[in-house]
């Protein structure tokens, strides 16, 4: 496993990149949501991540635990819908697990990410193939873990996570939604990518951009 450490600033850079990506892809996310939901996923995520970056800039957190706590609370209080509690809980749990430190190694980051995912599971009770953001998140973390545990670099692991998230996102197209508003469509939800899985894929695209080359 890599011994490379990840600094607080790099994690801020990850969040900043994620914020840029959701802004750039706002219409794409909203269009996906319009097809099987209520057409607000893009605007909700942009509102949330803009608030996150404003909060971090206004009062820079001094530890990684604080950083993720601010991110989680801000998302919970600004995004609304189902995405707010899900993304919010993800980062809140990451914060609790990270603790008052200024850097993480790969294994610690993986532990924090896994804690975040457990939070998502506790909150939304998604199962694999329910056509939710979990279908991008779970494969991404699985790939990240396998890569790290095979002594690959953090950079390789981040790229593996990005790829797995994207594959998971694309695979949601063939699924019947069993959670959220899309579930009311039943079979009519087939053929459409889940918007939550698409924003989660962006989270790991940002992750790979920041950590590749590390």
């Amino acid at each position: 496993m890599t011994s490379k450490t990840i600094s607080l600033n790099q994690l801020v850079a990850w969040l900043n990149k994620f914020s840029e990506l959701v802004s750039a892809q706002c219409n794409y996310l909203t269009d996906l949501d319009a097809a099987i939901g209520d057409a607000d996923h893009g605007t909700n995520m942009v509102r949330g991540m803009t608030a996150v970056m404003n909060a971090i800039t206004a009062a820079p957190p001094s530890t990684i635990g604080d950083l993720f706590k601010v991110v989680g609370m801000t998302l919970v209080s600004t995004v609304g819908g189902a995405s707010g509690p899900l993304y919010g809980t993800f980062f809140l749990r990451m914060g609790v697990t990270s603790g008052a430190v200024s850097e993480l190694n790969g294994a610690q980051l993986l532990m924090a990410l896994n804690a975040g995912m457990e939070g998502v599971v506790a909150r939304g009770k998604p199962l694999a193939n329910d056509k939710t953001l979990f279908d991008a998140l779970a494969p991404a973390l699985h790939a990240f873990a396998i890569s790290l545990n095979s002594c690959h670099s953090l950079s390789d692991a981040a790229l593996a996570a990005q790829t797995a998230a994207a594959v998971g996102r694309d695979a949601t197209a063939s699924l019947i939604a069993r959670k959220g508003r899309a579930s009311y469509l039943g079979e009519r939800s087939i053929g459409h990518i889940d918007p939550g899985s698409a924003s989660t894929a962006l989270l790991f695209e940002a992750f790979a951009e920041v950590f590749s080359g590390e």
Binding site: D38, N44, V76, S77, T78, G80, A82, G84, P85
Partner: peptide, 12 residues
């Protein structure tokens, strides 16, 4: 009150 068709948030 949430945004249009969007749940309000826990802090509210």
């Amino acid at each position: 009150a949430g945004e249009v068709f969007t749940s309000p948030t826990p802090d509210q």
